[in-house]
Amino acid sequence: MRKDEFLTELRNGLDGRVSPAELEDILNDYRELFAEGLLEGKTEEALCAELGSPAQTVKLILAERSSNGHVVVEREEEPPYAPLYKRIAAALLDFILSVLPLAFFGNVINVIPIMMIWPPAPFLYAVDPPPSTGTVAGALVCICYYVFYHCLFLLLFKGQTPGKRWMRLRVVSQDGTRLSASQTIGRELLGRLFVNSITFGIGYILSLIWSLFSKEHKTIHDVIAGTRVVQENRFAAKRSTHGYAIEKRGA
């Protein structure tokens, strides 16, 4: 691996998980390391081998930050928790969007209300009784879309679904860093779909009660994945102040 590849992968691995100013600081440290190493006559390949993989470097950097919890710049003001009504509005819009394609299949459309409580409902309909192979296949594709809807958008929009975008909410890790892929899967597939499927929707009701009484408005899937939902606008403003800070420091 060459220096540029290492730095690019490092940037990609850290982007969104540390503030832009901190990211620039970290990259500068590694630029210095390469410059000094080359001066000693080492090759870029040898230096990269010594450093270990970029993924591991990212892990070490993040581990050092969270275990000590001292990264002052990011801890000062926590983004506010999303109010409950916004979360419910976002969830309703997401539900509508996630079942929308199903409306094209006459035999599945009438289970849509049931899906609000019991997600796997259409599977029964799509499989038994099958009206035609084409319809069943189409319905299965729609159901897969429904199942992966949340994961897809959370990964694509870095912690947002269309509903959350509309309400300017964002799912983040408990420590305020960006949602990871494993957290996304844990939150949506395990915490939301699986739990509500096996409990016939009781999970949703418990989530609602729990979120009414907890200060952070946590749902069961938030607890399982170690996530929280924050109000986006102030968070975004904070990120831009960091951007300003780099320019000043670099000048």
Partner: peptide
């Protein structure tokens, strides 16, 4: 010790 750990500790000391 990994280089990354030393740099990370140094950054934290500086941030503090």
């Amino acid at each position: 010790v990994y280089d990354a750990s030393i740099y990370a500790i140094l950054r934290r000391i500086h941030a503090e």
